[in-house]
Each structure stands twice: as C-alpha cells, then as structure tokens.
Nucleic acid binder design. Structure first.
Lengths: 188, 188
DNA sequence: GTCTATAAATAGATAGAC
DNA sequence: GTCTATCTATTTATAGAC
C-alpha cells in the first residue's frame, strides 16, 4: 500500500478510536512507522488528513451501501441489513461509538469547517434508507430515514457508555419490528 | 463566586462547547481571568478538573430532576417534562449536542477512568425515568427508561449535525405521543 | 520519497515571591 | 490566594541531506 493510503488508514483508525483532537501527527506517524518529516511530505496540516479520512469513509460507505443492496432481494431486506450494522460491528461500537456520529459530534463542537463533509456521510445513509422506504410505500420516506438514523445513533451512544448487551439486543429487535411494520402497513 | 467554583463553571462550559481534549488549561485560565500559576493552586491535573465538573453536573442534574418532579402533578407530566429539554435547550443542543452524551462519547474514546462517573449522570436520568414509568404501570420500566434516553441521544446527535428544526419537532412529538401511549395503555 | 535536525508554539506542571 | 518566572514534554511545522 502506498504511503499516502497507509497514513489515511492509520489516521482513520486513530480518529475513530481516540477522537480527532486527541490524535497527534506523532501518533499517526508512529503507527505508520514513518518519520514526522516524511509525514509532512504527504499532508501539510491536520485538517488535510481529516479531509482525506472523510473522503475515504464516504467512499467506503458508498461501496458498503451498494453491496448491501446487491445482496438484498427486497427493500425491506435492505433496511434490515442496515440495522445489522449493530450485529457486525457490535464490539467496536460498544468501545468507540458510531464512527460517523462521534466524528460529527466532535466536529460540531470544534466548529470545524469539515462538519458538512462529515455530515454528508450521514446523508448517504439517509438517502439510501429513504429510497428503500419509498419503495415500500412509506408516505414520508425522508422523515422515516432520519428517524432510523436517530434511533441508531441513540443506541450507539448508550452502548459505548453502558456496555449493556441486553439493551442493544432489545433496541435492535425493536428496529427490525419497526421495519417489518412499515413493510406490512406502509401507510401507517 | 469563589475562584474554585468559577474555574469549575468555566471548565464545565468549555468542555461542553469545545470538548475535553480540545480544551487546555490556558483556555480555562484565560476565561476565568487568572494566571496559569493560580490555576494550579486549585487543580493539580486536568483529570481533577474533569472530576469536579462531572460532580457539579451530577449535582445540577439531581436538583433539576427534583425540580421537575416538584413542579409536575403526575408521573406522565414528569416524563413529558424530560422530553421538553429539547424545547428549553434546543439552541445549545443544536450547536454542541447533549452535554452528557457528548462527554461520555469522548471519555469512552479516551478510555478515560472518569467514564463511569460521567455515565452515572445518565443513570440519574435512567432511574428517575424508570421510577415514573413504573408509577404508570409500565411492565419494563428500566428498559423503557433506557429507550427514552437512547431516543433523546439520537435526536441530539442528528440535531447537532444537521441543524434541522423540523426533524427535532417531529421526534419530540413522537416521544410525547409514546409517553401518552404508555400512560394510557401501560401494559402494551 | 524518506530521513535527520531543528525551530517555534503550546500544553502541562512547579517554585517561589508577594 | 494570586502572581511571575521557569521548566519539561509535546505538537505542529520547516529545512535540507540522502
């Protein structure tokens, strides 16, 4: 892997696990195994790395959503697949929260110029969810998409605070039931 | 106000608005209008201030919950009062998220020893909500309390990312409706 | 592209005068 | 209790050799 991509991958991981403010250039350089001097050849400022990390995450999200869609046979199956994030990434979410939600929360506090770009990753999920909700006949697909996103964020936040597996199981079951309900009687 | 209390108040506000990692001793000292040297007379480490801030927030939370309870005539009214946080603190939440949720999220990432103490503020809400849900005859008061907390956290996270007032209004209305539904048919 | 060396600024922390 | 002065480590950033 070229150095630039390695740096982005390391920064991506460290920003997720430690947060943006708490991660220094030295942290990243040490993780990658290069000198700080070399580091500055690739990225001049911390903001530049952040932009690259956000772009990388957005690209991965697009690919993931396309994959979910390709592997699902119905709109409802797509929505269930979204909820299954908590099954696949449970351990990470319990330790570090949602990568998108925690980054946006931090950037909002820092009044950081990159907040809209980070929020755009949420928007990818939002539009993807809304598209499948609309396919189900949901009368307010965008509002319902935001609702599902909010529910997921709430679960992630409490999961990383309390580490309560039973709570996560209950909430996931509720989200699956909600999706089933929408699929069955979408006009409700 | 004594200097110590002034420092705690300033740190409380800065931790909320900027985050813990992004706030330096110099930031706090400048805000209070004292020298860094004086600062260290009152607090030896950053962790000590954090502990004091968390203790202060916990005390304020207890007082707030007691006040809500004193001003409400029914358990349902108490629960509605909780949801009204979003009416009272809407502007702040849209800019900086929930003070409890964002602090816990950051401390979880930092693997910080104070995470349980910060989480205990969530627990104050949790037990308070569960008590009033139980009074309504809710069969799983603690699970329902966590559910309400999670819903609130999700709203706060998306609110600080998207700044979408209509979204907040919809979600608040849903929470009020949910509480009404529990109050009307608690066994459901 | 990568390194070492180094600079300048900031952060956390202490000592001692007043 | 508060200040100035000082110290050390870290962080961000640059210059120049290889």
């Amino acid at each position: 892997m070229p150095t630039r991509a390695t740096i982005i991958a390391a920064a991506d991981d460290l920003f997720y696990r430690q947060g943006y403010a708490a991660t220094s250039f030295a942290d990243i350089a040490t993780t990658v195994g290069i000198s700080r001097g070399n580091f500055y050849y690739h990225f001049k400022t911390k903001d530049e790395i952040l932009d690259a990390v956000i772009a990388e995450r957005a690209a991965r999200t697009k690919a993931l959503l396309a994959q979910w869609e390709a592997e699902s046979t119905t709109p409802a199956a797509c929505l269930h697949r979204f909820v299954d994030i908590f099954v696949v990434n449970r351990a990470k979410i319990m330790r570090h929260g949602c990568p998108v939600g925690t980054l946006c929360a931090e950037l909002a506090k820092l009044d950081h110029a990159a907040l809209p770009d980070a929020g755009a990753i949420f928007t990818l999920f939002r539009h993807w969810l809304a598209r499948h909700l609309e396919a189900l006949g949901c009368p307010e697909p965008d509002a319902q998409a935001l609702h599902l996103l909010a529910r997921s964020q709430g679960i992630a936040t409490l999961a990383s605070t309390f580490h309560d597996e039973a709570f996560i199981d209950r909430e996931i079951a509720q989200l699956h039931a909600l999706i089933d309900h929408i699929a069955t009687s979408p006009e409700a």
